[in-house]
Structures are given as structure tokens and as C-alpha cells.
Design a protein around this nucleic acid. Sequence first.
DNA 1: GCAAAAGTGTTAGGTGTACACCCATGA
DNA 2: TCATGGGTGTACACCTAACACTTTTGC
Lengths: 230, 230
Amino acid sequence: MTQFYLQEDKLYISVDCIILGFKENAINVLIIKRKFEPLKGERSLMGGFVRMNESLDETVSRVISEYTGIEGVYLEQVGAYGDVGRDIGERVVSVVYYALIDMELFDEKLEKKHNAEWINIHNVGKLILDHNRFLDDTLKLMKRRTATRPVGFNLLPEKFTLPQLQSLYEAIYQKSMDKRNFRKKIFEMDILEKLDEKDKSASKRGAYYYKFNKEKYDHRLEDGFYFSFI
Amino acid sequence: MTQFYLQEDKLYISVDCIILGFKENAINVLIIKRKFEPLKGERSLMGGFVRMNESLDETVSRVISEYTGIEGVYLEQVGAYGDVGRDIGERVVSVVYYALIDMELFDEKLEKKHNAEWINIHNVGKLILDHNRFLDDTLKLMKRRTATRPVGFNLLPEKFTLPQLQSLYEAIYQKSMDKRNFRKKIFEMDILEKLDEKDKSASKRGAYYYKFNKEKYDHRLEDGFYFSFI
DNA sequence: GCAAAAGTGTTAGGTGTACACCCATGA
DNA sequence: TCATGGGTGTACACCTAACACTTTTGC
């Protein structure tokens, strides 16, 4: 059986990760300055080669964990990029994923170790190779996804306030929203659980904490419930 | 520079294609019965290995052209599938694409040559490996895409009637639509060009032919026009 | 007591949906 | 003339979007 494949070419496959986090009312992406040739000193996404005995998902998780210290994050595949000349020197097909992480869980020691920094997604300059394209495609996909699935919560801590949630969506869609309409929409979805606790860090009055209630959400999905932020 | 990659693994990469066509009010997919081992006689999607000097897009186009005789079709990537055991015998990462073709352009000689047949997407039985998953993922993606982009036209001849167009969308979404509402929506989009010619094959009165007007569509997109069938 | 953020309802306009009849033509 | 599919308009329900004031509390 192996005979059948023998005449075919084998290629390098890498995974590139776009790690997104939310802080100070902005979506940030983790970027590294490469410490070695080729392209030393230039800015890049995090990546890794897919190993023979490793699934794509395993490669991504390995890379994410290496650069953030976090396991089990929300991941979505953006796509495979395979133009012949996309990498320099060697032919490499890259599969791109993005991850939404809670920046409070980020291991800051890794920031120095990898020469990494969080950059506002609107100020990311030139990246190596076709990484800017990866980022552009990711942002389009992420906007669509956060509009139709409750995945934005992955960018927030487990407990969050409604002003926080709103400012997250405002950062994603780059437009300000009406407080009353936003809250009405969220409440109608009936997927949040209100806690008794308040966050007083942003105001004297304090804002109630909420949690995303996955059970409620899954239950609502069953009877053809259609989801839509924005 | 090449040194840098030397220690990494190289893998086989294949492309699998889901070729969709519209005929007799149903969406059909082209399926082959494999003529050789492994898995001889079983039903499969069309695929091909990515060659060292070929981009993914080139591989897809090669495969599509080989099995349909058509060039320049509408293509969209579904994703990369890379579980370690997904292929039997060897490790192969597969990148899946779907194509929307006008079945009138299909070269029927190739049907026998490749042991291929068009099967209604709701009657496709068991396919080899993880090909059923590819098909399921494709259909979800295609439904979303045809709902928000005017790509359904790729499944019709250049000239088509409104009853044809409606029956296409009814086949995609598996539900019947109101004629008046459908036409209203389409006309409001203002992306069709009415021809003077009629199609009399389905009725005595005849239905006017229309053409998709890409210029109009591109123009409307510029001023934040949001598109939505269904 | 005041500054600063959290929280709360109503209305008007627009969009989606349901629904029934006449038209054109070939046989 | 009749059977068959093509073509057309309206009314109601629902959803979206715009809008301003009161509440809480630490300082």
C-alpha cells in the first residue's frame, strides 16, 4: 500500500498561530521578533513545524502553550496557505490558526523569553513573509465568528461585567454601540448568569459580574435558535 | 538558510475536491469508485498529491480539470485535515476544497473514464476515510457562503431564469420559498440583468433569462452594501 | 454634594413574511 | 379553451435603531 505513495513529493508543513487577547479596550496580537536567521530581528507570528506523529491540532496546542503558558484555549483554523514561493528558501505549506485567550492567564515570563510583545491589531506593522495576509484573513474570520457564535467570551476572564463585554464587541467591530440596545440583545439571548458580586475597579457604583452559561446556550441551540451579536 | 529546516519532518500533502453541480432541482456531488488499491471499489472524493513545485491552488485546478474538463471554476478552501491516522498506511495531510460548476460544461466522457457519478448530496452513502466529514463541512460552509455572497450563480449556466434560480436556492436550503418574496429580494439587490430572451423549455409562456451582473455587484459592495439571500 | 460610571423603556421606521390572483402560450 | 408554469402587490408582525434620565457610591 505504501508503494502507492512512493512516487509523490513530501513537503514541510508548519502551523502559524495568531494569538489574540483583549486588554485596555483593544484587541491585541502576540508578535515575536525573531532571534535567529533567516529574517532575524523581523516581526513574525508564532509557528512550528508539524511532526510526523503529531496532528495539526496538537502542533497548534504545542505552539500556543510554548508562547503563552496556556492550555485548552479556543482555537479555529483559518486555512492552509501553500503558494510555492511563500517561504524563503524551502517549500513550506502553512496552516494558520487563531486563538482567543484570556490575557490574565498569560505567563508574562514568556514574553521576554521569546522576545514577544502584545500589539494592538490596528498597529501591527510589516510582518515577515505572508504573515500580514494571515492576520488580515484571521480578523475577517474572527469578526464573522464572534458575530454569530458566543466565542468572544474566550477573550474575557470567566467573570466579566457588561461594560467590559460591550467594550470587547466595540473593539472587535470598531464601532460604538448603544448601551441599552446592547444589553437588551444580550439579555434576550439568555446565555449569561448574573453573579452577586460587583467589580468596583472601574466605578464607584460597581458593575455586576456575569458568567457565560454554556448549558443554557447549548440548550437554546437545540430548538433552532439563531444567534446574532451586532 | 536551508539548514534551519533540515531537522524537521516532511509529510505528504494531498488536496481533496468536492465538486458540486445543480441538475433537476438537486445539488449533486461528483463521486468516484476507486479503481485501484488501497480501498479499491469504494467510493471517494477526487484527490491528488501536492507536488513540490505546485501551489495548492494549482493542485486543485489540476484535479478539477482532470475530472470535469472544466477550467477556471469557482473554488473555496474548506480547510486542512491533519489527524495522524486519517489516511491508512501513510501520514497524509489533506487540504479540502469545494468547487461549484455549471453541469452543462461537464465533459461526460470523463464520467466513464474515471468511474465517476453524480450523486444527490442527500444520498451520498459511506465514503472512504474521513471524506464524509469533508462533505459535511463543505455543505455547511457552502450554505453560509451562498447565503451571503452571490456565488450560487456558479452552479447555473450564464443565462438562467428566476424559477431556476429559486429552485437552486430551495435545493441548497432544503426549504421552499415564496415566489414573490424571493423575486422581491433578488430585484432589490439589483445585481441581475434581464435579457430579452425567454426559456420556453419548462412552460409555454416561457420565463425570461437573466444574467448575473458582476460590475453592478462590485459597485454596490463599495458602499457598505450587505448581501443576504434567505 | 458631586463626579463618574452603571443601569433602565419607549417609539418610529424598516424589514421579513404570509398570502391569491391574473397572464401568456402551446397543444 | 384549457392546463401549465410565469409573473405581480399588499398588510401585518416583528425587529432594529435612536434616544435621556436616574441610581449608586467613593471621595
